[in-house]
Amino acid sequence: MGQLKMKREGLFSKLAINLMFIVYCAMCLIPVLLVLSISLTNEKSLLTDGYHLIPKEFSLIGYQYVFSGTTSILNAYKITMIVTAVGSFLHLLVTSLMSYAISRNEVRYRNQVSFLVFFTILFNGGLAPYYILITKYLHLKDTLLVLIIVLLVSPVHVLIMRNFFKALPDSIIESARIDGSGEFNTFFRIVLPLSTPVLATIGLFISIAYWNDWFTSALFIENNKLYTLQYLLQALMSNIQYLLSNEQASRAIEKSIGMLPGESARMAACVLSIGPIILMYPVLQRYFVKGLTLGAVKA
């Protein structure tokens, strides 16, 4: 009897939990669907009918405009993917090494280092000295490297990751040491495989940051072969705004392609920029699961 009651209670609470998540997810989906819907709506219908969750008049012109309106968007995808992949990998490597070291109790200056790292979260010298450093002293203007290097270390990520390493059972590391494993070896062979959940999480965040970064391009990139996707899309959006407010321009465009897709193109650009990263998420998700099972086997 008791067994059955518990089971029924479990079923009930499971139902309640799922229901809650479904409601919350619906709330999260409304804005996303609205963006998608606007991107697929005829511009004229947006002006007369307003925004709706389901397009009143379906149209792909927003997407057409994004793809035809600017320089090679494919090259920009390529650059962004290289920067995101290389950048995220290096970011994880540098961050995990540093945060592992300052998570270990036998490292005496760990707190001093942590403080030095933390301090940079609060204080910065502003954009001007940073710009001078990058262009005048490091000569990184107009290089692929600058796109990678600006986000290479994030103090917040270092401190978050440090806490995850702190939670690892000390006994694993001690026993590896007793087996004669060097510190680097322990880190790469034992600690990292156990830390896939946090690596996947930080990896997700940093790849989003690399993917979304358009300002670095705007400031430091002048060679049109190094433009990143987000920069192109950003430029496209402010260009639409500029063209729309220029009477002569918008008339000439209307003559050739019909009404300049303002809202719809803007939202299409948004969909095109976040689409790939949302699709990438399940891949990282798989790492989660893999890390979990790996961890279980080891433990």
Binding site: V94, T95, L97, M98, Y100, A101, I102, R104, E106, V107, R108, V113, L116, V117, T120, F123, N124, G125, G126, A128, P129, Y130, I132, L133, I149, V150, L152, V153, P155, V158, G182, E183, F184, F187
Partner: peptide, 26 residues
């Protein structure tokens, strides 16, 4: 503890160059 400090080095170097040097701009 040289292996640990070696692990800290790349990150610390980065923070000194890219975070602390421009801080004088404050």
């Amino acid at each position: 503890r040289w292996p640990f400090y070696l692990m800290i080095l790349p990150g610390m170097l980065y923070i000194v160059i890219f975070n602390y040097l421009p801080m004088f701009g404050a």
